[in-house]
Nucleic acid binder design. Structure first.
Lengths: 210, 210
DNA sequence: CAGCATCCGCTTTGATACTG
DNA sequence: CAGTATCAAAGCGGATGCTG
């Protein structure tokens, strides 16, 4: 990216991460921890492969990403955020939180990946009864199932499927999200096509903090 | 901006504010409250005038900016953030905070405007002795003087000059910033060309929180 | 002069094909 | 799998022109 040439910390930040796709690459690395090139490309539907390569090179030069050689027998290149790159989490979360209201619009034929639910889950949801035994909710909305688990008073997401989920939810991403966020009652969501199996109280336990 | 077409709140946020210059336009409106077209152009050195017009139109369509007709005798158009636009403050601050370490690099011939100091001041500085009488520090670093004032335990910036400043500081932006942030001692900063008149304890009172 | 719109050369991006 | 190469289209930057 061409520099803004302004002695302002916001402009300096955007000089580094203001390019198209850059923050979405950071998103994938924040969500995945470390990832192969192909994983990243799969998590960034729509990106041109040359752009992904270019962004990764720029992020590496800026010191936000390191590439590591995975040990045999895998023997592939893994990308991972440096501590400096991890520090973007606060800003990325703030932007994601700001963008959350835009999710009520019709997704149309937007792409979706299950692990993207980690932002809403970790930013917006809280565990209403953290003293009780932890629960697990398996969610099947995108390509692969994921599990929402309570823990430390919050909600975390990990790749699924769950071993013994307390409930399983599946359906269109917007239905799943609306139900999780409490915008949609379970009955109404079911009418619109959501499938929910298991203890309905699991859903009541994971509720938006605000 | 072309949409990323991803059903993810970060991608949705970037669909709206991810274009080049957009967040810097938001910065100016956050810092100024409301501004004329010409004020914005002056606060965004390097922007092409057609791009500023285009960004303002896009921000208006997205519901982040409104244009108001200033009452006579001024009779000019004023731009202002909507509440939804103001909500970007959290994300903008987070990005600016992340970018702050990049300010130690040589600014070269970067442009500078005094009111840009508001980010470091409000984000990073705190009033060490909030119970004592408020103090005012006039800073002359860019085009026009600004005043840093204590209040509510924090530090605020307003357009200067101050009426009766407790101290006046002037010099290169990097020197001013380094001194404010405590990276540079007053003596060393003076050796490098900083000018400081008034009570040195004012400087000790405004200190980085972290 | 404030507030844009138009034009044009250049850079970035997007889509696809191709390679070690 | 992990990219590079190519090329058309879109976006940007800079200059200039127009209108109240």
């Amino acid at each position: 990216m061409r520099s803004y040439r302004q002695y302002c910390s916001l402009a300096k930040a955007l000089d580094v991460v203001g390019d198209r796709w850059t923050l979405l690459v950071v998103r994938e690395l924040l969500l995945r921890g470390s990832a192969r090139y192909t994983d990243l490309r799969d998590g960034l539907p729509g990106i041109a492969t040359n752009l992904l390569a270019e962004r990764l090179r720029e992020l590496e030069e800026a010191g936000l990403v390191v590439r590591e050689q995975a040990p045999p027998p895998v023997a592939t290149t893994l990308y991972r955020l440096t501590p400096r790159g991890e520090e973007l989490k606060v800003a990325v979360h703030a932007l994601a939180r700001w963008g959350a209201p835009l999710m009520v619009d019709d997704p149309g034929d937007d792409a979706f990946r299950g692990h993207w639910l980690a932002f809403p889950a970790e930013i917006l949801l809280t565990d209403r009864t953290p003293d009780r035994a932890p629960v697990a909710l398996e969610v099947r909305a995108g390509d692969a199932p994921v599990v929402l688990e309570t823990g430390d008073g919050g909600v975390r997401l990990r790749p699924g499927p769950a071993e013994r989920p307390d409930a399983v939810m599946s359906g269109e991403p917007r239905l799943v999200l609306g139900t999780l966020m409490g915008k949609l009652g379970l009955d109404e969501a079911r009418e619109r096509g959501l499938s929910y199996d298991g203890d309905p109280r699991v859903l009541g336990r994971l509720r938006p903090a605000s």
